[in-house]
């Protein structure tokens, strides 16, 4: 065969594969949303889940997902940014830095089910938290800390370029420099990382099965007691999230319309992921403009 023909055939094949993959994604997302669309109504989204009879909603699970997201971000972000600051600004080459890097790599490569089991052992059993919001949030923190740290480190290193010396030369301490000059300009990039992490947290199930638990209490919004078991905001109540709910519906299917509920839940999850993704993209673009000084 002529080399030119070969070249054309190869190009065509590459086009076909690439379009097929994009088509697959479009069909995949389309399928989920269309299948779930009949469930996407007010009663489904905010109604409480039934055991047995038909017509259950996903209200509590949806609330749990968001609440867990917030709690785990409240723990993960300060720790990840702190570690990012250390790695980017204070750490000196040596065994301790190598140890941290190896730890991050190890944590990042752990299967999430293993992280979930660690959470079960340490948070749920040893620290006696039981299946709870807090145990789930801590497991999620372990899962997301490596990514958060990496994102922060990169953002801070980028933001420090050039301006760090200028600040120190004015007699600022390193921490003053970090707090007043470097962090403010690193925030947009860190925020993009946070939103992407939020998408992952929202969809995570394996790490939560044995930490946040596979059941939820009825939500009582009248009390905001963080320690109480009856309050919706209680940190020590079992709190099944939406992603866990899908898994449980599939494996146990106790309600009559389990398929319908699972379809609706999958659609909600995917829509949330799309929203997080678009948000991160939008921020990323804004960040680009602010760096290049346009606008």
């Amino acid at each position: 065969m002529n080399v030119r023909t070969k070249d054309k055939i190869a190009t065509a094949v590459l086009y076909v594969i690439s379009s097929a993959i994009v088509l697959l994604l479009v069909m995949f997302i389309g399928y989920i949303i269309i299948k779930g669309s009949e469930s996407l109504n007010f009663r489904f989204l905010f109604g409480s889940s039934g055991v047995g009879g038909e017509g259950g909603g996903i209200g509590p699970q949806l609330f749990n997902s968001f609440y867990l997201l917030i709690i785990s971000l409240l723990i993960t972000v300060p720790l990840g940014v702190g570690a990012g600051i250390y790695l980017s600004q204070y750490a000196k080459e040596g065994w301790f830095l190598n140890l941290i890097r190896l730890s991050i790599e190890t944590m990042a490569s752990l299967p999430s089910i293993v992280v979930g089991l660690f959470g079960l052992l340490v948070f749920v059993i040893m620290l006696k938290m039981g299946y709870s919001m807090l145990a789930g949030a801590l497991a999620i923190t372990v899962l997301n800390l490596p990514a958060m740290t990496r994102v922060s480190e990169t953002a801070i290193t980028t933001a420090a370029k050039g301006v760090k010396e200028a600040s120190l030369a004015l007699g600022a301490t390193e921490w003053q420099t970090i707090k007043k000059v470097i962090l403010p300009s690193a925030i947009p990039q860190i925020l993009t990382g946070i939103i992407l992490a939020a998408g992952r947290i929202f969809g995570e199930a394996a790490a939560l099965l044995y930490t946040a638990g596979m059941s939820t209490t009825k939500l009582n919004f009248k009390s905001i007691n963080l320690l109480g078991k009856s309050s919706a905001f209680g940190l020590f109540r079992p709190s099944e999230t939406l992603a866990v709910h899908i898994w449980k519906l599939n494996s146990e299917g106790m309600v009559a319309d389990a398929v319908k509920i699972a379809n609706g839940s999958a659609a909600v999850l995917v829509i949330m992921v799309l929203i997080f993704n678009l948000l991160a993209r939008y921020l990323g673009r804004k960040l680009y403009y602010s760096y290049t000084g346009k606008k």
């Binding site: 997302i29 969809g203 599939n250 999958a266």
Partner: peptide
């Protein structure tokens, strides 16, 4: 987007 889709959704 493929990365973002939760694994339970893939399973479902």
């Amino acid at each position: 987007l493929f990365v973002g889709i939760p694994s339970v959704v893939y399973g479902w």
